[in-house]
Design a binder for these strands. Structure first.
Lengths: 205, 205
DNA sequence: TGTCAATGGTAACGCTCATTACCGGAGGCC
DNA sequence: GGCCTCCGGTAATGAGCGTTACCATTGACA
């Protein structure tokens, strides 16, 4: 048992959340026991129950906190001002980095299985994450369309296509634990190729 | 309890597998109890233990059988002989149908969470499913490249792009239980748009 | 220093579950 | 018809779980 207790209760809460996230993301919700979390964080179960009330409360806190911090960067980046190719490439690289991060892979895994146990959590995860991302990309495409850089079409759908290309088999393999997260070079290569195909595919003719 | 027992032991085995798959795919591996399966299939737990040995054995049989039957159609279709656009569209529609089917959605869900509990099963699921599919598409693209219809490039990667476009946010929403499977018209529209972008994006210049 | 409140550790409770021991009855064989 | 074997149902077993009751210890304050 690695005792991570700390005098400041704020960091203590963080340590509990971190330990719990590690176990939840690796084992899944049902298979995670409070004991396993305590074994990692030190202290006793009383800590968890006084801080979070229940296993569900702890889990909800984790998803809320992690999806906030990890996904908010997706909405906050201002990659525009460059030309469309550079914008898409920067967007794609950032997207892939976030999708491949252990935290988001963990949330993704658990969202998929616990969909019907925590529908509201899953809904807010999707809306804050993939949903918002796709909408923002659709706006970028909309402006490019008005500038005449790409041909007319349904920008939401085109954004879906691009995001899908970014989140392809590579992502699936990582989520399934079949391979480690890609290196920076692999990310650049994959995104570069996707941007090339996409841009050529939607260019105004 | 709906008793689905049947004199022929083959169909009895099938009924058990079907009931078990229903529960496993909805609840996940850990949260599924043998009792819940029996409640659905009728009979008693002894049946399961004499036929499959253990919960793990039952689960493995389900994944093996279902991924065989559902995914084999992906390798067996002969959509070639048409022009590339039609080939891709037919391929994409079939792919999307399979990915959206309740069985494959169920397997997908459970593969994502149980990745580290059943690594070999997940590996074989990937190889038989997305892996083999992508390879087959890559071969199609390779031949098109040799015919000069598409520009030079890494066909495996291009196939990844196409498969990713097909398996986009729509698929994610279905997997997360946020919306029902798409209608035939929606499938056609999504695939049509993806084929258009992809084909234009890889066309020889 | 003595009292009080709160924090946190331990152990217990009630429940669920996978697995198995046990038993009754059905059907084949003499 | 009588015996025996096997199949399937029931109930028990033992472990693990979330949650909580209870108790010790500690630190503050008078």
């Amino acid at each position: 048992m690695a005792d991570t207790r700390d005098p400041q209760s704020g960091t203590r809460r963080q340590a509990l959340l971190q330990a719990a996230a590690d176990v939840f993301f690796e084992q899944g919700y049902v298979a995670t026991s409070i004991d396993a979390i305590i074994e990692r964080a030190g202290g006793s179960k009383r800590n968890i129950y006084s801080e979070f009330g229940s296993k569900q409360g702890l889990f909800a806190a984790i998803v809320r906190e992690n999806s906030d911090s990890a996904l908010s960067t997706l909405a906050a980046d201002d990659v525009e001002g460059l030309d469309l190719a550079e914008t898409l490439a920067a967007f794609g690289r950032h997207l892939l980095d976030v999708y491949m991060s252990p935290t988001v892979v963990g949330i993704y895994r658990i969202a998929v299985t616990e969909a019907h146990r925590f529908p509201e959590l899953v809904k807010s995860f999707y809306e804050q994450g993939p949903g918002r991302t796709t909408s923002r990309l659709a706006e970028v495409l909309e402006r490019a369309m008005q500038r005449g850089e790409i041909r007319n079409g349904d920008c939401e759908r085109l954004a879906d296509h691009f995001v899908g290309m970014i989140r392809d088999n590579l992502h699936l393999q990582v989520v399934l634990g079949l391979r480690p997260a890609p290196s920076q070079e692999e990310v650049c290569a994959a995104v570069g190729s996707a941007v090339e195909v996409f841009l050529e595919g939607v260019r105004a003719r």
